[in-house]
Computed example of a mutant assay.
Amino acid sequence: MKLIRLFSLAALLLATLSFAGCAKGKKGTGGNGSTDGDYVNGSPLPDRQEGVSFLGSNVDRSKFRPVYFGFDSYVISSGERSKIDEVAEFMKSASNTLILAGFTDERGTPEYNRGLGERRAQAVREALIHAGADGSKIQTVSFGAEMPADPGSGDSAWAKNRRAEFGVVR
């Protein structure tokens, strides 16, 4: 059963990354000098790195604490800002790429939850850029309700699952 779930998650990640390149926004010069790239709220998204996955062994997901969100929200509360400031300070001096993954609780349709997870990851990305991090080194992905931090049901579990996690590419 765990193998089936892992395979399903890998397929979902592959589909997410495959479709990410399909929706191009404004064209322009990205931070890496390219003239092609996605833009979110005026900030260029970097090209996906070949062979890099949020779930991969080349990504450290334990370096920073997750940012938590309220129900059905992608607004970053003032209590979570210090986490973003810590990551932004690291990013100012590091050459690493950062992958932001957005997650939701189990309520809602899979499509809605993937969209909400993406909005959460994008909100954290924009906050990092505002705090001085280089947007060309920050990628986003959404897992929606997949990969819950707490597999239980109820307010306590749901609060732990509404989050954005940081993955530092090694």
Rank of each mutant, 00 (worst) to 15 (best):
F7M: 12
S8T: 11
S8W: 10
A10D: 06
A10L: 14
A10N: 10
L12R: 12
L12M: 13
T16S: 12
S18Y: 06
S18V: 01
F19R: 13
A20I: 02
G21S: 09
A23Q: 05
K24A: 12
K26I: 11
K27R: 15
G28L: 12
G33I: 00
G33F: 01
S34C: 01
S34H: 01
S34E: 04
S34N: 10
D36T: 15
D36V: 13
G37T: 07
D38G: 12
D38E: 10
N41H: 14
G42W: 10
D47I: 03
D47F: 11
R48K: 11
R48A: 09
Q49P: 02
E50Q: 12
E50P: 00
F54N: 05
L55R: 08
L55E: 05
N58P: 01
S62C: 09
S62N: 15
K63L: 14
F64D: 10
P66H: 01
V67Q: 00
G70K: 15
D72M: 13
S73F: 10
S73G: 14
S73K: 14
I76N: 04
S78T: 13
G79E: 08
G79Y: 09
K83Q: 05
I84T: 06
D85F: 09
V87Y: 01
F90C: 15
K92F: 00
S93R: 15
A94I: 07
S95K: 15
L98C: 04
L100R: 12
G102R: 01
R107D: 11
R107T: 09
R107F: 03
P110A: 04
P110K: 07
N113F: 02
R114T: 03
R114N: 00
G115C: 02
L116A: 10
G117A: 03
E118S: 09
R120L: 03
R120Y: 05
R120C: 06
V124F: 08
E126A: 15
E126M: 14
A127Y: 04
L128I: 07
I129S: 04
I129L: 00
H130E: 12
H130Y: 06
A131I: 06
K137Y: 01
I138C: 04
I138H: 03
Q139N: 11
Q139E: 08
Q139G: 08
V141H: 08
S142W: 02
E146F: 13
E146L: 13
E146G: 07
M147N: 13
D150H: 06
D150E: 02
G152P: 07
G152S: 14
G154W: 06
G154M: 07
